[in-house]
Amino acid sequence: MHSNRILQVESITKDYGTGDHKTTALKGISFDVLEGEFLGIMGASGSGKTTLLNCIATMTKPTSGNIMLNHQNISSFKGGALADYRGKEIGYLFQEFELLDNLTARENIILPLSLHGMTGKQGEQKLRELANHFDIVSVLNKFPSQMSGGQKQRVAAARALIGDPSIVLADEPTGALDSKNARILMDKLSAIHKEQHKTIIMVTHDANVASFCSRILFIQDGCLFHELRRNIRTETTDNFYERIVTVVAQLGGGSANVL
C-alpha cells in the first residue's frame, strides 16, 4: 500500500444510558481509512452508523477506544483544540444541509474560515473555485430560503471543503434530495475526491449513492459486519451497485444468509 493511513479507529465502543437502561450503540469497531479514500458506511436504521460518524466528528465521545486522525488521538481533544479540529481538520456535510438561513450562500461558505480568524477577502479565491465546481456562482448572494434543495446541499458541500480539511464527513448527504439533485451532488463530490484526492467518509443507506464510494463498510447492531471494495480500474459503478444491493438484501435477511 503506497497510501498513508489518515484515520485509525481502534476498538471503539459507545454506550448510552447507565445500569438497566444501558444501550450499546457501538460494540468495538476498528478500521483504518487511507488518504484519498472514499469510504461508505452502510447499515440499517439503528445499526450505529451515524453514532460512528459522530464519534469521528467529535460530536459525541466514544465510551472506550481511540480515534486517531493523522496520528493524533482526537478523543482527547478539548476546548480550543476541539474547535480547531472541527473547523480545520474535518468538513461536515449534513443530511438537512444545516445552512444558517440568515446568512447568504457566500457568508455560509466563508463561515468556517471566519471562525478560524480569516476574513472573507482572504478566502475569496478558494470560494470562487468551489463555487464554480459546485455550480453555485449564481446563488452566492442569495439566502437559503431562495435556493433549491440541491443548491443548498452544494453550498453546504462547498462550506465543508473551504477550509481544506483532511477529511470530509457526510451524513446521508442526499437524504433530503430528489434523485436528480442527488446524482449531481454525488458527481461533484466524486470529482473532488478524484481530482483532489480528498478523503471522504459517507454514511448512507442508498445503494445508488454508495456506489460512488471506493470501499464500503457494513455495520449491523454496532459491529462491523462486512466490507466491500470496489476495483476502481475494472469495476464500473453499475457493477459495484449490483454487489452492494446484494449485500444490503442479505443484511435485511439476517447474518445467516451472508458469506
Binding site: 444558517l100 446568512l103 457568508e107 466563508i110 463561515l111 474560515l113 471566519s114 471562525l115 478560524h116 480568524g117 480569516m118 476574513t119 472573507g120 477577502k121 475569496e124
Partner: peptide
C-alpha cells in the same frame, strides 16, 4: 464590512 472581518461578525 463583513468580507473584511473574521470570527462571528457576519453571523
Amino acid at each position: 464590512k463583513g468580507p473584511s472581518q473574521s470570527g462571528l461578525f457576519t453571523f
